[in-house]
Amino acid sequence: MSHELAIEINSLLAALILLTSFGLLVQRRVYGLLHIFAWQGVFLSVSTAIVGYSAGLNHLYISAAMTLVIKVFALPYILYVLIHKLRIKKEVEDMVNIPTTMLIGIAVVIFSYHLTAPIRELSTLMTRSTLAVALSTVLLGLLMMITRKKAVTQIIGFLALENGLFFAATSATYGMPLVVELGVALDILIAAFIFGMFFFQIRTSFDSLDLKEMEKLKDLD
């Protein structure tokens, strides 16, 4: 695989990651969200592996494998089980309507592009052009957490945000040190479990997973 081809494939994967971020932003069904999230993990993992291959950094292979295991299989599975047990069947409710969310999303991407333009000028890495995508993924994940009402979609937004951070690390500096990445991966896994327990707790307290219910906490005391 030549260097140019690696760059092209990496760009394509970055584009696909951006697409999946938008997919998460506009998808209405909970299971659909999980699928898109899993796909994002796949692209992320392949991208990491390709960067590792062409930059000759072996620890990126481990990161890629870890991403594949945790983000493509483990986390979606945990969430799947969670959703199944909580019997969430309804479509995802959003606070802002979808076309507006899309337009805000586009604005966010343009903003990230503008913000990362100076870095792109300075950097010499092959992945420098994907930095804007990485930043947009982070911001879009955050946007998703803002615009959705239900707790489950919020955790997916949070995980997407983490994907963006991971991607940013890869594209800005060819990845974080392995120890850090291992730590983060473990954190996320544990976070998912804790979130799961929280959901059960929230539901038993409020009979709903709608975060609007949390507003009532203010009135309790």
Binding site: L19, F22, I98, G105
Partner: peptide, 20 residues
């Protein structure tokens, strides 16, 4: 919404031309 998605995709195409 369907056509909004089309617009989104086209815009992403434009953005990825400049970004990537």
């Amino acid at each position: 919404e369907f056509l909004g998605a089309a617009f989104l995709l086209a815009t992403l195409g434009m953005l990825s031309y400049f970004m990537l």
